[in-house]
């Protein structure tokens, strides 16, 4: 039932492992992709308590989905897809509209310059809030771009043509830029 629990050694490099279908232990996956999952949860749910629920649901979804991973895409792509789909289904179940709460996540504790830290925190917070305001199809694309996926990977993940991706991304960038400039 749990092939991913078998302790199979991960491919070196962490981020792009799993391409041959070998899945590292769940603990390693959490260490490698926990921040990705956390950011995706944060970009769909502003309320800290609901976000904690969502994060748990994503971890459970990943745990359940890992046995079906066949290595036809990178493990990071697989996990991002599961996390996005679980997040979207989570927000559709919420009766109220997503709120725009503060971000409690802390940054590096040893940042040399507190002023820089504050600026970065503010910038990241603004970016996250603006992303949450985007329509779902655009939000999905911009999150994947910000996560560092290539356009080919994103088009494959969303099963859309490159021109459709380009259009969606262009709209998302315009909307995001407008929101960030009017902060």
């Amino acid at each position: 039932m749990e092939p991913h629990q078998s302790g199979t050694a991960a491919a070196p490099g962490g981020g792009g492992d799993g391409a041959n279908g070998a899945v590292p232990p769940f603990e390693r996956i959490v260490a490698d992709y926990g921040p990705l999952i956390s950011r995706i949860a944060m970009s769909y749910e502003a309320d800290p308590n609901l976000r904690e629920d969502l994060t748990q649901q994503i971890f459970l979804a990943v745990w359940q989905a890992l046995p079906s991973y066949r290595g036809d895409s990178s493990l990071k792509t697989f996990i991002a897809r599961v996390a996005q789909n679980r997040s979207i289904s989570f927000v559709t179940k919420q009766v109220r509209q997503p709120r725009l709460a503060e971000l409690p996540e802390r940054l590096e504790a040893d940042t040399p310059n507190p002023e820089e830290e504050a600026i970065e925190l503010n910038e990241r917070e603004m970016l996250m809030q603006a992303t949450r305001r985007l329509p779902l199809p655009q939000r999905e694309v911009i999150i994947l771009v910000l996560e560092g996926f290539s356009y080919a990977e994103i088009a494959n993940m969303l099963d859309i043509a490159p021109n459709a991706l380009a259009l969606r991304l262009s709209r998302a960038k315009t909307a995001l830029k407008s929101m960030l400039e009017h902060k």
Binding site: A31, G34, P35, S38, R39, E105, R106, L107, E108, A109, E120, E123, R124, L127, M128, L146, E147, G148
Partner: peptide, 11 residues
């Protein structure tokens, strides 16, 4: 900016 790693406590 987006991909800043969370601190060890968050991890």
């Amino acid at each position: 900016v987006w991909r800043q790693q969370p601190d060890p406590a968050e991890m």
